[in-house]
Amino acid sequence: MTNTPNAIHTAEARLEVLTRINRAAQDMVAPVKPPYPQGEVLSREAILEQFEDRILDYKAGFLRVAPAGVAQAVATALAGETRAVVPQGLDLAWLPAELTLLRDSPRLSHAELDGIGTVITGAAVAISTTGTIILNHVAGQGRRALTLIPDRHICIVRASQVVQTVPEGMQAVASSVTAGQPLTLISGPSATSDIELVRVEGVHGPRQLSVIVVEGI
């Protein structure tokens, strides 16, 4: 970190910017922030139903199964695909027996990942209000490139991981952020509305997203 380009120059700029800001803000007083607004609190069942509704609205796949049915649900989401990359730490009982597992160890190159069609992961938490899955890229989810380059992402979420609101979801990953982990918030497949504001699902990120919610765990 001592090897910064133009280090002296930057140090001068740093002092200059901070001085200007301090002078500019000297009359400012921080306001008292109001509490975070609360909406209606939903029941567990209503939260899961809302989550399903939001996921489907993003044109992603959704399946809700008992623990015993996960492997079958994954097989359905695979849609005929015979191999998938799977991060360390994912519960192997969730995967169909006939699936060829590709491992990220030794690390797969970008080109190798580009040749793999599907990735299967868990998640850190999910938010029903917005249909959002949060990955904190610990065991069971893999590094960021794993869930980015393959074109299909199958994400297995435990029902107990689904919270209702955005602040609940962000709070649930606070400790991993503090620990330095990166986060990826995923709400449906990759999309763009850049041409005449017509939403097109599937640009650079995974073009297909399937979410499997496992009940009772």
Binding site: T129, T130, G131, P182, I186, S187, G188, A191, G205
Partner: peptide
């Protein structure tokens, strides 16, 4: 949208 498709955070 209720949420944009992707948000990245890194430290």
């Amino acid at each position: 949208e209720r949420m944009n498709p992707y948000t990245s955070f890194w430290s």
